[in-house]
Amino acid sequence: MKLIRLALGLCALLGAQLTLADTTQYPLTIKSCNREVTFTHAPEHAVSHDINMTQMMLALGLKPHMAGYSGISGWKAVTPEMKVILDGLPELASKYPSVETLLNANVDFFFAGWDYGMRVGGDLTPQTLTPLGINVYELTESCAFVMKRPAASMQDTYNDLRNLGKIFNVQDRATALIVQMQQKIAEVQTSLPATKPRVFLYDSGEDRAMTSGKLGIPHALIEAAGGNDILSDIDASWTRINWETVVERNPEVIVIVDYSEVSAEQKQHFLQTNPALQSVDAIRNNRFIVIPYVQATPGIDNVLAIETMAKGFHPQ
């Protein structure tokens, strides 16, 4: 949350330097995945889905434009800091909102992603909501589920922040936040050694491992922190793989995503006691790093994930 306060403080410094060209001119057309979305004015009753997208909107000072949020309490623990910034903003659904829920809240904008509140062929999609007067902006990283795109990078998150800045006419705040994130990542990367440990990200699963290929943001975070993602050749976003693949690629470090009913400690215990994984270097040497869900998904806390992983990859 310190990042939010620092970024908003920087807004005041940058605001005086921005020209009138940075003011949104409506109607505005924004690219969202493989679609174009047109806004005649800034949304007034927006809803964000999931903790990472809600955090982005709140960091941009968009709470007055929001009807609420969804998909947080039903899945992830809300930190005391997050409770403070959510105060006064209703959670419309603890997991997935229905179309009726959005209509009852008079929602005019839905910020979500594929596999982050929306699924192909589901009830909540741009195709079902747009005719009802609800514009949808899709999380850039999640576009891999509906179109061909390159490997995930921090540019995906910067793109979302820039587009939100344009949509809501708060481009100065978006610029400030992006600059702050870039500066912090640059500080981390100036001291990284040339050696890169082999890294595997473990989200969940016992029969098979839920993880991320090169199209998911964890790939970008591992690389930015000076690690070598063992699944960098997997042309997928969030996906499942066999444990045989993990053993073959022999990670030196395992990053555990902490959320849901199964704790990070329980996940680590499963990995350490699984007979099939005992030859893996990370397990033999007890090299585990834990990051919360909000840091492992596209958003402003990706900076914290990069800082944490860089220290864990290169303890020296």
Rank of each mutant, 00 (worst) to 15 (best):
G88K: 14
G88F: 08
G88S: 06
G88A: 15
L89E: 12
P90H: 12
P90I: 14
P90T: 13
P90C: 06
P90F: 11
E91R: 03
L92V: 10
L92I: 15
A93F: 07
A93M: 04
S94Y: 08
S94N: 13
S94D: 14
S94L: 10
S94T: 14
K95I: 14
Y96G: 13
Y96K: 15
S98L: 04
S98V: 01
V99F: 01
V99Q: 06
V99N: 06
E100F: 03
E100L: 03
E100K: 05
E100G: 10
T101K: 10
L102A: 01
L102Y: 00
L103R: 09
L103H: 01
L103I: 03
L103W: 04
L103S: 09
N104P: 02
N104V: 13
N104G: 13
N104R: 08
N106K: 13
N106C: 03
V107M: 05
V107A: 11
D108Q: 02
D108A: 12
D108N: 12
F109R: 00
A112V: 07
G113I: 11
G113D: 04
W114I: 10
D115V: 11
D115Y: 03
Y116A: 15
G117Y: 03
G117C: 12
M118H: 05
M118R: 02
R119V: 09
V120F: 02
V120Q: 14
G121N: 07
G122Q: 08
G122W: 11
G122H: 04
G122I: 09
D123N: 07
D123H: 05
L124I: 15
L124N: 05
L124Q: 09
L124Y: 05
T125Y: 04
T125I: 11
T125W: 02
T125K: 00
T125G: 05
T125R: 04
P126K: 11
P126N: 06
Q127E: 14
Q127N: 13
Q127R: 14
Q127T: 11
T128R: 05
L129C: 03
T130G: 04
T130W: 02
P131A: 11
P131D: 07
P131C: 08
L132T: 03
G133F: 00
G133C: 10
I134P: 01
I134S: 01
N135R: 14
V136W: 00
V136D: 06
V136C: 07
V136E: 00
Y137A: 08
Y137F: 10
E138H: 09
E138R: 02
